[in-house]
């Protein structure tokens, strides 16, 4: 059969900022190349606890001669990620993926706006890399709004600086960049972006995304968001990772974050 679970070997697993970790995993070269927005389910190989895999979006991927390497950027939020954070070099992990529907790419759009909150930077960073390298976007066409509660939660900035010319940083407490919510900062600039030639990609806490949804409600922007939810299978079978959306008839329906998503159109999601 085509799909399998891969055993990855940890090359490094470091705390880059308080509670934020960067894990680098070596995988067999037959591992399929993850598209921006896709994720993997990761478990500690051979252990029965934590029981379920943890869905983590792919931060970077590169293929070498004898193996490929994948980076996962994650925040310690609970039991599973806490145990992950304790893994040392050469530990083995089960990697299931790449999973999920990636971001849609619109090469005809002139402007790309990224809006990330905290750890939401991870999939957008991979996307920015992909757009520079494979879709030939110029740095000047891409604007990145990155926000977090505080300076310690602004991560992935070094890499972003190589990818995007125009980076705007905001923190709720003003410890780094402007003192503002990232969504408010974007709203101030919104007239710079014409809906017909702009695509917006966003990832962050649900609070941030719901504010963005309200802001863009009557506007005609193409805005894609990547969502998070607890998952069990990652393949669309268990129906555990439901998100409420409006279907084509305007009725409430539940879609699966793992397989229908994690990328959704901002306006189809029902934000409570």
């Amino acid at each position: 059969m085509k799909k399998n679970i891969y055993i990855g070997e940890i090359l490094k697993n470091e705390e880059i900022q308080n509670d934020y970790f960067l894990m680098k995993v070596a995988l067999n070269n037959s591992f399929a190349e993850p598209q921006p927005g896709q994720f993997v389910m990761i478990r500690i190989a051979g252990l029965s606890e934590p029981f379920l895999g943890r869905p983590i979006s792919v931060y970077s991927f590169s293929r070498g001669k004898s193996f490929c390497t994948m980076e996962l950027l994650y925040r310690v939020v609970g039991r599973g990620t806490k145990i992950m954070a304790g893994l040392i070099k050469n530990s083995q992990v089960e990697i299931h993926g790449p999973l999920g529907t990636p971001f849609a790419i619109f090469p005809a759009k002139e402007k790309i706006v990224f809006i990330a909150g905290g750890i939401g930077v991870a999939p957008l960073s991979l996307l920015a890399h992909h757009l520079c390298k494979n879709v030939c976007y110029d740095k000047s066409q891409m604007t990145f709004y990155l926000g977090a509660q505080t300076a310690e939660a602004i991560i992935g900035l070094d890499r972003l600086k190589k990818l995007c010319y125009d980076i705007h940083i905001y923190t709720d407490d003003g410890t780094l960049g402007g003192k503002s919510l990232v969504t408010q900062a974007f709203q101030k600039d919104i007239k710079k972006y014409q809906p017909e030639n702009t695509v917006i990609y966003a990832c962050g806490p649900n609070g941030m995304l719901s504010v963005l949804a309200k802001m863009l409600k009557s506007k005609k922007y193409n805005c894609q968001v990547s969502l998070e939810e607890r998952m069990a299978c990652g393949t669309g079978a268990c129906m555990g990772c439901a998100v409420a959306i409006r279907d084509n008839n305007g009725a409430l329906a539940y879609k699966r974050v793992c397989s229908d998503g994690p990328v959704f159109n901002l306006q189809e999601v029902i934000w409570e």
């Binding site: 039991r79 069990a232 539940y254």
Partner: peptide, 23 residues
């Protein structure tokens, strides 16, 4: 059937809870 609103699952010791609601 629509199923139940999320969150629908939770990991537990050696297992998991689900309340998918027969979607």
């Amino acid at each position: 059937r629509l199923g139940n609103p999320p969150p629908r699952i939770m990991e537990t010791a050696s297992g998991m809870l689900n309340a998918v609601g027969l979607q």
